[in-house]
Amino acid sequence: MEIKKITIRGGIGKDGEREKVQEFELKMGDIISIVGPTGCGKTTLINDIELFANYNTPSQRQILINDEPIPDDFSFDPSKHPIALISQHTNFLSDLPVGEFLTIHAAVRGAENAENIIEETLDFANQLTGESINRLTGMTELSGGQTRSLLIADAVIIGNSPIILLDEIENAGIHRTKALELLKKYDKIFVFVTHDARIALLSDFRIIMKQGAMQKVIYTGIEERRAAQELKKIDDVMLEFRRLIRAGEEITEPVFNENIKNLVYNNI
């Protein structure tokens, strides 16, 4: 099935009231964010999308593909599932070595040149982690950040799904600007659940959630796009401090001053 667009129809929030946002659409190439306080139902919303909810989940939402609902008992062959969900999990439970796991997953997904694809997946993942992931390492031994990095790489490259839902990639200490940069090279729908201002402002639009319900949709305007550019400076400075601290450097007055001097903002 070729997916042109996905429609999300609002249901009810935790209080049983209708959601304020009653409908929005995702088209190929869209990048969107879902934001809101902890526990407000962000993960629930992307789970509904992944399940192609049809009034059969607690939130009573309905998801349409190319304007059609998915029947209740329809179940995708998971290897052809058009949606990849990168969950908040930061550990694997599979007792297999990384290489073997990826080999099976590539086979399940019908990859033609499995060896190259696995190489590309590990390469992608290793650009996001501190310490590289080795093929012989057990999946369960990977750190939180390594797990997240591998999940993202696996979904994008081995899964090759047209729609990718990412739950809080900023957690677990992976290189998120790098992740965003790498992801943008692929023409897909990306939905980010995020608490991160920059990821939110780099999206085409964002859904604001509260009490299990979608409250409003904000399209990122020119001012916000400029603000995102300016915020990048703070972000880069923070990342540089993080890198220095991780590398065992001390943040002395000259080091601090040298890095902070880049923080000159323009008006937006």
């Binding site: 992944e50 997953h105 999940l151």
Partner: peptide
């Protein structure tokens, strides 16, 4: 578990 693990377990 993650979606990738689901696919492998199902296999």
């Amino acid at each position: 578990i993650s979606q990738a693990e689901r696919e492998v377990f199902r296999y």
